[in-house]
Amino acid sequence: MKNIIVCVKVVPKSDNIIFDPVNKRLDRTKAENQINAADKSAIETALRIRERVGGKITLLSMGPPFFEPFLKLGIAMGVDEAILLSDRNFGGADTFPTALVLATAIKKIGNVDLVLTGEESSDAGLGQVPSQIAEFLDFPQVLFASTTDISGGTLIARRSIKGGYEILESDLPAVVSVVLGAYQPRFPDFKKKKWADNNYKVKVWNGEDLQLSESVTGIKGSFTTVKRLVEIPQSSRKKIIIDGTPEEKSSKLVEILRKAK
């Protein structure tokens, strides 16, 4: 194997995002951040593939400078290199320019056999970036893979489908999106983490490094805009509490279930 790229995103934990219904804005300042869970499965997939067939793993992420420590976490998990694609003009991108920036960086890295991503991010959850990266690189794509392996220069992936599973084979190079829960991601190595925090320098590429003009990145390169944010009405459920001994609770439950028939 030559280069394996893993595209990751840093996302806020959704539990601590606060919606301000008056200004219709999201307050993310109190939100803790993390590497998107499915992307960690993609990192784990890459590490397993490298164990079997070798290769160099590069983490790639488009985002602001505060992503850097999270990319170092990837280094501590065992990836070889981390590159942050960061430029003020990249801000406000929808999936199209995001995928364009990532694909351009992948071309710049060169000699790539495999691009792995998470199935979707937990914040926006569109899941379109992987297929658009594939389109811009003219690579084949396999989405929602639960296992991914390389055998005899071919990619073999398994994915769940309605009622069962299918096994796909694909030419290389390819783009594969990995489902959340595909593999349990390993913990970062504590010593490596310390080393990375103090000594590893994340490579940063901006629009100029990628030779991408302002007009095709960020807001300007986006086709879609968020027109409105609306709070989804919280459920108006009755919330009737059923107390008592297990005996009493089960009687009440039977009554409710019978009534519904």
Binding site: L126, S131, Q132, E135, F136, F144, R159
Partner: peptide, 23 residues
Amino acid sequence: ATQNGRDLAGRLAGRLKTGLTAN
């Protein structure tokens, strides 16, 4: 937004250079 539907939509929007929303 089935698996194949999402597979198709993302790539088609990339090819046609247009905007796509998911789910």
